[in-house]
Design a protein around this nucleic acid. Structure first.
Length: 437
RNA sequence: GUGAGUGUAGCUCAGCCGGUUAGAGCGCCUGACUGUGGAUCAGGAGGUCGAGGGUUCGAAUCCCUUCACUCACCCCA
């Protein structure tokens, strides 16, 4: 009977991670993990499902209406697959808000789901490295978060010619829209959305969209001038005394003291799509002409924990997607050549040596090496070929000749060099060879 | 959800003005070189040419539909 076979393709917008892919993913995540831990951040995780209301409240209309995977469970609860981690971490923090020493420094690498049309740098399932600090109200926390972001980019092999962090402040933009543009809340939202798209629009198209929101020509001019301000320009601007501008000034001062300012630019056109940001917001841009896009973003949210608790607790953090980071690494040729996952192959001469091979492999493993032992007797040709294909640098063999003299032979696959040593010196010989690689 | 492009072996592709059993390179498997991989040589497996329908004596090749992938829009990581 011939049955129709199922497709081997992964579900739309998802990826299979074959061992070679998984090695790279692990390398990238471990780099991020190590960096975050070096700043004292601790790893956490949460469930992939949350109640639907958690996102309905704060995450932004578009995300909830168009991009959320959600369904009713068998008990009739309306649940959603997490599209972002910030609500979950806020919930977790709120649940223990009185018992965790502050500041709270946490990070996580969750997989997140959004229902959208896949394209470059944008899939339905992706992993996102998330770092957050809770419990520090000043911009000094924003500084630490930005420093971590920069350090991760450096640890992944990038430098300041590869990327730049664009920094703005929601409060400043908000106050500007109130005072100078005299907009109400819905007007502000509309203008924000337009500013967010500015880079993709022609200048006159941008002005046309702004005028549709009801702004006069003069106000459009002053808004465009405002979004183009650099630090010196902001210092002369009428908004300089507002709290948002003061925060930005202070943040840039600290960045300079830490010599991080060369990675950063003031960019008052940065808005961020998520509704919950209240202060500093930032996005990292790839400077390479082939990959001009936001690599990741983040900011300060002073009211998110309030969803779950009467006690206010401020937070600031960012999220970094694995897809965009890999695109970044590919365009800048930063994908590392990873060391082989196995160091030693123990060949099997014939079936009389089965026990010896396993003993030998065990001894080498105890010395800290990763070892594959030949399972069943096959021609030596095939065994060496297998070791070659798997990129295993050292092959060990004990045949009748070696056994008679209590010796063992090893071969270095890259050079082809072989030698025979006393059994007791095997591990030392392997170690010496691997060190030289 | 909208628009554009692409779908031929595991991968990269050729064939596509319709015409006998559908090809190459790489990869994979088997064997030779007889305690050992890479080189060479000799074999082999693997494709209902994305799927369905139509035109035709005849379709991988022309037409329609559909699906998938890619890119852009929307939004965002």
């Amino acid at each position: 009977m011939k049955t129709k076979k199922l497709s081997t393709q992964p579900y739309k917008g998802t990826r299979d991670f074959y061992p070679e892919d998984m090695r790279l993913r692990n390398w990238i995540f471990n780099t991020m993990r190590t960096t975050a831990q070096s700043f004292g951040y601790e790893e956490y995780d949460g469930p992939m499902l949350e109640l639907f209301e958690m996102y309905a409240a704060k995450s932004g209309e578009e995300l909830v209406n168009e991009q959320l995977y959600h369904f009713q469970d068998r008990g009739g609860r309306h649940v959603a697959i997490r599209p972002e981690m910030t609500p979950t971490v806020s919930r977790m923090v709120a649940a223990r808000i009185n018992t965790i020493p502050r500041p709270i420094r946490w990070f996580s690498i969750p997989n997140l789901w959004r229902y959208e049309r896949p394209q470059k740098g944008r899939l339905r399932e992706h992993w996102q490295f998330n770092v957050d600090v809770f419990g520090v109200d000043s911009v000094l926390a924003d500084l630490e978060i930005i420093e971590i972001a920069i350090q991760i980019m450096l640890d992944l092999g990038g430098d300041f010619t590869d990327f730049r962090i664009h920094i703005s402040n929601r409060k400043l933009l908000n106050d500007f829209m109130t005072r100078a543009l005299e907009l109400d809340e819905s007007g502000k939202q509309a203008v924000c959305k337009t500013i967010d798209k500015k880079d993709k629009l022609q200048n006159d198209e941008f002005r046309r969209m702004l005028s549709q929101t009801g702004l006069t020509r003069d106000k459009i001019d002053s808004l465009i001038d405002f979004t183009r301000l650099d630090r010196a320009g902001l210092a002369r601007h009428e908004m300089i005394a507002t709290s948002g501008a003061v925060e930005l000034e202070s943040l840039f001062g600290k960045l300079k003291e830490s010599e991080l300012d060369r990675f950063c630019t003031l960019d008052l056109s940065i808005v961020r799509g998520l509704d919950y940001y209240t202060g500093t917001v930032f996005e990292m841009y790839d400077l390479h002409p082939d990959n001009r896009r936001a690599l990741f973003g983040g900011g300060r949210y002073d009211n998110l924990v309030a969803l779950f608790s009467n006690q206010p607790l401020s937070g600031v953090g960012f999220g970094m997607g694995d897809v965009t980071i890999q695109d970044f690494m590919i365009t800048h040729q930063l994908i590392p050549v990873l060391p082989p996952p196995v160091e030693v192959f123990v060949a099997l001469f014939d079936e009389t040596c089965l026990g010896e091979v396993r003993d030998c492999a065990r001894r080498i493993r105890r010395a800290g090496f990763r070892v594959i032992a030949q399972i069943e007797p096959v021609k030596l040709t095939k065994q060496y070929k297998f070791a070659h294909q798997k990129n295993i640098p050292v092959v060990v063999l004990q045949g009748p000749d070696e056994r008679a003299g209590n010796t063992i032979s090893l071969k270095q696959m890259i050079s082809g060099e072989q030698k025979t040593v006393p059994e007791s010196e095997l591990n030392a010989a392997i170690r010496a060879w691997l060190r030289r690689m």
